[in-house]
Design a protein around this nucleic acid. Structure first.
Lengths: 154, 154
DNA sequence: CCTTGACCTAAAGTTAGGTTGAGATCGTAG
DNA sequence: CTACGATCTCAACCTAACTTTAGGTCAAGG
């Protein structure tokens, strides 16, 4: 437990304060999410501001963002000085856009599913859950015939 | 391409019809999502109804469900006969409940984030994104102190 | 000085959801 | 009968996000 006047903290203290395992913190460093300095003995010394940085990582993960995406957001923070309220607010906004898009997409699917349950098309020809673009975009493996499409010979 | 009168289909044809790789279909069998019979030569013979079963797996994956969760839903289908419209509608309903819950959770987070952006609490003491229950439930690793909680000494 | 606990590195292991490769067999067209 | 593509099994490999293990070092208390 470092006293209030010490400017850097150990990996153990950062772990205790954030609930993130020491091994995970070292992993985050290897992924360039954290940039601790080293003391004369080679041990990591973090800034107190890194507590907030790690907390941000945790929240972003709860929102479903990958480590790479989180890194992109963190890269937008200023280097050389401790991030301010405004700095955090700025990246939170960019972050909200992703989240909004994610919610919208899920709602669209939910609405399609609603339609399918109502009309029974989960077992008919015209199920709207058939969505070729998505699959073509993610895999390039050509069209996929989902739930009841081309079902004339089923 | 099996003629319309043949009752079973090959793994290659099932792959072609669903867009799912042959290797993935074999993997699904290993995970007990599919139960093909075998011909005299040991090759898998699927039912035409398995096209719909695989399509269901794809859609469920798009909704973010794991293979294990999808298996749970598929296990609710009747054995011994081809599932009907009503059978599929029944599991789609259970499925919608999960989806609704997921959307609600995401919206709650989005709303908290909205609040945080507005009030600047991403760098203050009382950030509502601090959510001890969730973490305690998922990991059992004790409380996690998120974004600005206990920030008096930051 | 000695012990003990926190810390270090590098490499290997873990889970999910598959893919890839090797080597052998099946099945069908010519 | 011979080719040749489709299938078969089994094991190894892949990414993400970490954890674990092994073997060794640092730092603080007594």
């Amino acid at each position: 437990m470092p006293s209030i006047v010490e400017k850097t903290i150990s990996i153990g203290y950062l772990s205790e304060r954030t609930g993130v395992a020491v091994s995970a913190l070292r992993y985050y460093e290897s992924q360039n999410l954290l940039f601790p300095e080293r003391n004369s003995g080679g041990q990591r010394r973090f800034l107190r501001a890194d507590i907030r940085r790690v907390s941000f990582i945790l929240i972003a993960q709860q929102f479903g963002f990958s480590i790479a995406q989180i890194k992109e957001q963190l890269d937008r923070l200023p280097q050389g000085r401790t991030p301010t309220k405004r700095d955090w607010a700025k990246i939170s906004t960019g972050f909200k856009r992703h989240l909004d898009a994610k919610i919208t997409a899920l709602q669209a699917m939910r609405d399609k599913l609603d339609g399918c349950i109502g009309c029974g098309c989960l077992s008919l020809k015209s199920c709207t859950l058939y969505n070729p673009q998505d699959k073509a975009a993610t895999k390039g493996t050509g069209p996929r015939y989902l739930m009841g499409d081309r079902s004339q010979d089923i």
